[in-house]
Design a protein around this nucleic acid. Structure first.
Lengths: 194, 194
DNA sequence: CGTCTATTTGAATGTACTCAAAAGCGGTGG
DNA sequence: CCACCGCTTTTGAGTACATTCAAATAGACG
């Protein structure tokens, strides 16, 4: 909990009273490896802050192919925001890739919290603003870079994730097949030799 | 201006006093067809609300290819948010595709406005939240749908834009070449006949 | 009518995908 | 301790989707 409040304080200054209110609106929860925080089709009832562990958000298309939308590790948020704000069935699944501790805020409690502690509007504006800017960057990269370039950039930007998730999931995140990523890696290895 | 306040009131309730403050922080501006609101390399100093007209946001990659990130028409916002919040050089260009009227809010004024009218935090949280959710959806679509499916969906979702912008720009938005879009349209036309 | 820009068409090419099979790797039980 | 099982990664051949380049056609505007 302290860690979470510390994280909050990177964005907003809170009084002790406000901290108490915030704490009372949150819920701690643990998930096992493989468990789902959100399942597509369900309405996403809460947004989850990852305290420890590792999650992936993915979309299952009509052909049954999984597309990883994002990974989540310490200090990241996970959930289907679109589903939560519209209270419509989720498009995405959020699954834990290892034992994961989260702090959750439920939709109603969040709305309530915005009233009680208006600074939280600012906090989430800042968080979502960053997420938006990053997603837009990623979109552009998919258009303007080759798969190989995207892979190298990913390894560079998220070394921690690169090491902690299986390769086929990175392929899925990059929007390519696992076979093709293997190909790319092979190619990179050859280049390194010469 | 009334139109803008009406638009604001779809998200937040404002007192007359608050409206006056907001008005005083905004700037009206007109652009001609072809003019740039933001140029990549410059620091984006303001965010622009499109009152009328039409803009495109695009990224110019290392090969000199343009990639359209988004279009903007009435009631949309345009700018390089990433540049504005970090005060670093913009990656994107925002160009007017026709004579365009905008209402602009400059970075400093916006920060000031957040202090003066905290409801604006809520307003922009809601706006950016929507934008984020939409961008994420688009990202997933690019992974899970073929170019043809994306084109048909685009025509369906943004009929107004489909009619008002040249085809090669739609191709750029979809992440394909103008030639290939022409191909796709040809194919669709053939299917319609049979 | 001529010019400029946008769109179409087609052929050759390239990037990434599919499918199938083999190899690697880690854990578990005999 | 090794054999086996399931899961991940690699490899390769054939294929599909999308690009590039070049040239022709169509449209818009003065």
């Amino acid at each position: 909990m302290d860690k979470f409040l510390q994280y909050l304080s990177r964005y907003i200054n809170l009084t002790d009273h406000e901290k108490t209110i915030i704490e009372s609106r949150l819920k701690h929860r643990n998930y096992l490896k493989g468990q789902y925080i959100v399942q597509s089709g369900d309405i996403c009832k809460c947004h989850s802050y990852v305290v420890s562990g590792k999650v992936r958000t993915f979309y299952l298309d009509d052909n049954g192919t999984e597309h990883i939308v994002m990974f989540g590790i310490e200090n990241w948020w996970a959930g289907d925001l679109g589903s939560m704000i519209t209270q419509k069935p989720a498009d995405f699944n959020v699954q834990c890739l290892e034992h994961t501790k989260v702090i959750q805020i439920y939709y109603e409690k969040l709305e309530q919290l915005y009233e009680e502690v208006p600074k939280m509007e600012r906090f989430f504006r800042l968080i979502i603003q960053n997420a938006y800017v990053n997603t837009q960057k990623r979109l552009v990269r998919n258009y303007s870079m080759t798969a190989k370039e995207r892979y190298l950039l990913f390894c560079d930007e998220y070394p921690e994730i690169t090491q902690r998730v299986p390769q086929y999931m990175i392929a899925s995140y990059l929007g390519i097949t696992k076979e093709f990523l293997s190909h790319i890696r092979n190619q990179i290895a050859k280049e390194a030799k010469s």
